[in-house]
């Protein structure tokens, strides 16, 4: 990830943005799952492949998102193989929309200055 220098005089976003989502790894998980249609779920290995994260690392962040009630983790079986299916909850979808709107508001604030 390339780091952009923070613009001078810009308000620090961290106080206003949802801290559960406002971390690179979890943000990427939320973005990927938000692209899924409502009513669809994605299996763990596919999400892992899409994001290029290790299974252990992804699990940690998924747990945090699940604890916040943003994602739903469904353990099921595909034949004999256990499968974990993931999707945003309604609350998670709303939280992500609000987060995106807040980022955009902050950005227009920084651009005005």
């Amino acid at each position: 990830m390339s780091e952009e220098p923070t613009r001078g005089g810009a308000p620090t976003p961290d106080h206003e943005l949802d801290p559960v989502i406002h971390a690179q790894a979890r943000l990427r998980v939320m973005v990927a799952l938000s692209v899924l249609r409502e009513g669809d779920r994605l299996a763990f290995p596919r999400l892992q492949e899409l994001l290029g994260m290790t299974a252990g690392n992804l699990s940690i962040h998924l747990r945090k998102l699940e604890e916040a009630g943003y994602i739903e983790v469904v353990k099921t079986h595909q034949g004999r193989t256990p499968t974990t299916l993931l999707g945003l909850t309604r609350r998670g979808r709303l939280a992500f929309e609000e987060y995106t709107a807040a980022v955009k508001a902050l950005l227009s604030l920084t651009e005005e200055k």
Partner: peptide, 11 residues
């Protein structure tokens, strides 16, 4: 991974 993106633009 816990680090926040550097700026709203980066986010």
């Amino acid at each position: 991974d816990e680090r926040a993106p550097a700026s709203p633009a980066e986010t």
